[in-house]
């Protein structure tokens, strides 16, 4: 990474409100995908109490310094940035050490993000779950945001709270990623549909990720799917999100509507003729 920057960096908060819906997985995969498209990308783990981004990227053994030491001026920024071996355009910066739970303030976050942004095209901030101090710190430096949710009532409700907070903070644009989509359940209306979620949350959809077992395999290995899982549907979805963020016009397809199986067609027929459901 050199210090010459043309356009200002895109500083994107990845948040959800509810825990366990896929924030960190999205951050890791999006980071790799953007880096592979030639963007100098820094992923910042703002969840320093329970940090996991290092683990998903396979960088857990290479962290020596964190943003904390950079701010205290006990090390240089480039010493704290952990470069990914296979994808040198990507670097990880953990916000802090799990043992130090008190140091971070919104001002600290703004300072460190400003430093990182000088040498990056994209800064992705992996936000902690919740809407308390961790969220406020992480959101302090963000210009835009991606809210990730799953088609479940609890996740959508929490996402709504977060969107409200982002709106009052003036973060814009805020875009939506719908994760763990099960097309079959959606087609039989046993799961909130894609349109249901986008209607309720009133956000533009920047990506849709179907439920994919390969995500678990890739986290076990510490190798994000976008690194070499090109065949998997989730990998494709993450790559598409990266390309849409760069301004490419790729339509988001609703996989529950794309199903043209015999049973789906039969069910649709029954639905239309009887008007029952």
């Amino acid at each position: 990474m050199d210090a010459v920057t043309s356009a200002p960096a895109r500083i994107i908060l990845i948040c959800s409100g509810k825990g366990g819906v896929g924030k960190t997985t999205l951050t890791a995969n999006l980071g790799i995908a953007l880096a592979r498209l030639g963007e100098r990308t820094v992923v910042l783990d703002a969840d320093f109490g329970l940090r996991n981004l290092d683990l998903l990227l396979g960088l857990e053994n290479r962290i020596v310094y964190t943003a904390q030491e950079v701010l205290a001026e006990t090390c240089r920024l480039d010493q704290a940035l952990v470069k990914h071996k296979q994808e040198p355009n990507l670097a990880l910066l953990p916000a802090g050490n799990p043992r130090m739970l008190e140091w971070l303030t919104p001002e600290d976050m703004q300072r460190i993000v400003a430093m990182v942004a000088e040498r990056a095209d994209f800064v992705l901030i992996d936000c902690p779950a919740g809407i308390e101090d961790g969220f406020k710190n992480a959101a302090a430096a963000a210009r835009e945001a991606i809210v990730i949710t799953t088609p479940e009532v609890s996740a959508v409700r929490d996402a709504d709270r977060v969107i409200g907070l982002l709106n009052t903070r003036g973060v814009t644009p805020v875009q939506l990623v719908l994760n763990r989509v099960r097309p079959r359940m959606m087609a039989s209306q046993e799961m909130l549909g894609v349109d249901d979620v986008t209607d309720i949350l009133a956000l533009p959809l920047v990506g849709l990720v179907v439920e994919d077992e390969q995500v678990i395999v890739s986290t076990n290995r510490g190798e994000p799917l976008t690194l070499n899982g090109n065949g998997s549907p989730a990998a494709k979805a993450y790559q598409n999100i990266a390309r849409r963020l760069r301004g490419e016009d790729i339509p988001v397809e609703d996989p529950s509507k794309a199903r043209k199986g015999l049973r789906a067609r039969l069910m649709n027929k029954i639905r239309k003729t009887t008007g029952l459901f």
Binding site: V153, S188, Q189, E190, M191, G193, D196, I200, F277
Partner: peptide, 12 residues
């Protein structure tokens, strides 16, 4: 009703 529809109504 299908549970997805119930989910939407409850959420709204």
């Amino acid at each position: 009703k299908p549970s997805g529809t119930m989910a939407k109504e409850r959420l709204q």
